[in-house]
Design a protein around this nucleic acid. Sequence first.
DNA 1: TTATAGTATAGCCAAATGGCTATACAATAT
DNA 2: ATATTGTATAGCCATTTGGCTATACTATAA
Lengths: 120, 120
Amino acid sequence: MAIQYNTSLDRTFHALGDGTRRKILSILAGQGASTASELLAPFDVAQPTISKHLKVLEKAGLVRREVEGRIHRFELVTNPMDEAESWISRHKQFWEGTLSRLDTFVDQLEKPSNKQEKNE
Amino acid sequence: MAIQYNTSLDRTFHALGDGTRRKILSILAGQGASTASELLAPFDVAQPTISKHLKVLEKAGLVRREVEGRIHRFELVTNPMDEAESWISRHKQFWEGTLSRLDTFVDQLEKPSNKQEKNE
DNA sequence: TTATAGTATAGCCAAATGGCTATACAATAT
DNA sequence: ATATTGTATAGCCATTTGGCTATACTATAA
């Protein structure tokens, strides 16, 4: 079986790994909360395609959905980005020699507290 | 056709979206340049699997390969992480209201200089 | 020279991905 | 009451992904 993006970091990075989804986040960052229609408009893809992307972003926690009547309004949630940025930052730091290379480094990197099958 | 991770950002985030690959990068960050065997050891997967992961990381530019005889030595390259971190950072900034919301924000986010089919 | 060690490639598989069309459904508007 | 709008779901498709085994290849060791 292929893994299914168990960890939050998996989901976050995976969600960010698609240009359409990044652009959706950009729009939300630029103009604040927006409806699904507003998020669909700038793209040349079918409505269900954006609907799917929004679900991916929602599951990754990068977006929060609020339903008002038949309108679904989305807003950016940056918390998952913190974890992702932190991961990158730590690795850059080590590489730049800012911190000493502990041999426990690898173990510290991602807390093993999550008991997924593919935890790191 | 599904997209094929054209942009550098696509490749970077996609590469980081897998726990095994992140752990490989962690090992490289922690103990410096390592051979394919050394990178294989900590995992409970077949050798060709790691070989594939290394190729993905190499194509994303996150790793540089040096062949010495039959030994392939890999080292971390953080440059692509800069771009990724910068993307995240910019979006967090806007969300936190640190910068004013320009309506040109979205256009600025990723330079449209790459003429890929899926550029943002 | 023959064996072994270090890696990559080929080829297979099941699952996930991203896209589309058609359709459903609920909420608002007429 | 009926039409329309906003959005999701179902179901299909081709491609990609991550994993495996078997095999090939090259370089070093015996």
